[in-house]
Design a protein around this nucleic acid. Sequence first.
DNA 1: CAAACTTTTACGGGGCGTGAATGTCT
DNA 2: GAGACATTCACGCCCCGTAAAAGTTT
Lengths: 137, 137
Amino acid sequence: MPEAELFQIGEVAKRVTLSLRTVRYYEEVGLVLPATRTTGNFRLYDNDAIERLLIIKQMKPLEFALEEMREVLELRALVLSNPGDEELTAARDRLGMYAAVANQRCESLREQLSVAEAFSATLAEEVARAERLGHRG
Amino acid sequence: MPEAELFQIGEVAKRVTLSLRTVRYYEEVGLVLPATRTTGNFRLYDNDAIERLLIIKQMKPLEFALEEMREVLELRALVLSNPGDEELTAARDRLGMYAAVANQRCESLREQLSVAEAFSATLAEEVARAERLGHRG
DNA sequence: CAAACTTTTACGGGGCGTGAATGTCT
DNA sequence: GAGACATTCACGCCCCGTAAAAGTTT
């Protein structure tokens, strides 16, 4: 078996580009737990934890609550490890709902982006126009 | 001169699709003030206020703090009403900075959107795959 | 031993949601 | 007078930022 590497929170935070506070908070809400602790109580994370953190970062723009992300991760683990299991129909359905919501959020994000771009362009133009007038004033 | 129409907060909220709480909060932080009040202390907004609210809604995706939005609105009013005024160079510059930040936020939004779309697509595919396996299981 | 890292605890803040008790009336 | 609106507190929530005081050491 391959070495199961363990990392302190600082290393982890650097790798996934999240703050220490954030990583700790994710533990507080049961979203990402350290694999173990040192005798002195330092958190030690494994690669699975880092994976989770990276996935969470991907989900962030979708504006799921942390509790919802927790559920998505759980459902995904279930569904992916036992694909096609008849017992897991409920889990698949629920994950399907999340997938649908994710799609809607994407649509909403696209709208927001176009609004943002429109405003940004308008602002830039207004500034440019005022500057032109200023230079000849 | 055209009638200066005044609207109660409920009307305003409906027109701009913001909650009453939000509109009141915007007053609290000095972002959008009612033009006046009734003798019974009901807020009365004019068209300018509604305009401000709509612009604020446009700025929202750019993730400016409300205080920053306040400043942008102020700078814009200055710059647009006195374009080319030499005294307002500082204001134009500052507004230019906001315009630059707005551009960066747009770029950031585009990145977030593509991350969101990627995750959304992956999730949908995983669900679809598990469902296919389930139906033949 | 010192430097660098970590721990827990706890307060703060932004942008509202959500009552509750009360007052007004476009 | 009733109903639809509005008002002012004021607490709560989420996702952390930011010390402070203390302990640990990949």
